[in-house]
Design a protein around this nucleic acid. Sequence first.
DNA 1: TTGACAAGACACCAAAAGGTGTCTTATAAT
DNA 2: ATTATAAGACACCTTTTGGTGTCTTGTCAA
Lengths: 109, 109
Amino acid sequence: MNESNPLRDVFDAIADPTRRRLIRLLAEAEELPLHELTAQFQMGRTAVSKHLTILKEARLVLDRKVGRETRFRLNAAPLSEVQDWVAFYSKFWSTNMMHLKHLLEEEEE
Amino acid sequence: MNESNPLRDVFDAIADPTRRRLIRLLAEAEELPLHELTAQFQMGRTAVSKHLTILKEARLVLDRKVGRETRFRLNAAPLSEVQDWVAFYSKFWSTNMMHLKHLLEEEEE
DNA sequence: TTGACAAGACACCAAAAGGTGTCTTATAAT
DNA sequence: ATTATAAGACACCTTTTGGTGTCTTGTCAA
């Protein structure tokens, strides 16, 4: 068994609204087969499958075969990278920080 | 004065590593002109300018002309949308939640 | 055992993304 | 007055993205 997956950037994976909706659906449902996921969208099965492949490459979903269907489940862990990234910048917009910044600028004058 | 900007998705704007690095540079430097930003990359000025345009469309940067240079500054506020989004899924990977989930599953049996 | 269903594997396509280079126009410096 | 710098505006190119349709294979149900 080989992990031949190309390893995709998480920020890239969540950039597409369809993929964010897939993540949402999987968060709500624990485990879903491809055809049920496809039913939620207007696009065809092939397109949804491609999106799921991208999510897999980013390790955001796991899949397993059950009978003739392929079931997907969420693996949210890689999203921690996004959380860490955005947390760094939160100091630049939080209202507390705005207030603090204002005070500091007054002191400088 | 017209806001003719196409309004770009924040998730889309932060998907590109070059743009994330631009955000980082602007976070560190308060305000920087295009040519100084360009000096940090291997690509040409036009390419960097295009990335900054995309960041502008997502309202992540502001620009003003000063003499012959165009200076950019960070506006991190739109990142709160990302923070809110990812916060929702943090319950699916935090170790506390893993523990709690485990307990709940034990109860079900 | 014959159908119907789920999904993988392709081939294909249009549009968008991410670069490049060149030309022009302000502005600053000499 | 002249030259150098900063950057906008384009035209252009290649690769990636996001979708389609078709063919095949495996699995379940009648």
